[in-house]
Amino acid sequence: MSDKVTNILLVGVGGQGILLASEILAEAFMLAGFDVKKSEIHGMSQRGGSVVSHVRFGATVCSPVVPEGEGDILFGFELLETYRYLPLLRSGAKVVANDFRIYPPAVLLGQQAYPDGLAEKIRNLMPDLLLVDGLKFAIEAGNPRAANTVLLGAVSGKLDIEESVWLNAIEKMVPRKALDVNLKAFRIGRSL
């Protein structure tokens, strides 16, 4: 199975820090000796729109985009977006989702309701769901803005890569002044 490419999708709302998280993932896979490719869309989607980033690693990776129905891990920064992208996954994929809601325009305007029971709906389709209160643990680590790193830690627990590699990747990608909080947030997430 060493030829197998692992497919990760990071989804959420523009402005949530999805691109940095996907860069840290990609960096870790390169440091661990894998080929890696990633792809995402900039531009329109940054204005509060739905965002999806693809990260793939393995012995050799061809396409930068995860083929439909072949996602192995979904890393969701927001519940509605996590649910939206489930069709990109294979059955039995792993989901790590932030227990966090950002209302889309139609909900803010009172025209549509934000769906109830999304975590259950996700679990019904993808039983391997780890729901994380990223904000709570980030505050515990010392900064509410480190929620993404908590989630990254939780995702790392689903991958067979040594902790030291992850820590090296974070050290390389995160600004020095925010490093301690992020390393702490990562360890909390990894222990979940």
Binding site: M44, Q46, R47, G49, S50, G69, R84, P87, P104, L125
Partner: peptide, 18 residues
């Protein structure tokens, strides 16, 4: 045969002015 996972319709999230 490939059967994509079926999800229910949900509110869309188009880009918006800040």
């Amino acid at each position: 045969e490939y059967q994509a996972i079926q999800t229910e319709p949900i509110p869309s999230r188009p880009p918006n002015m800040c």
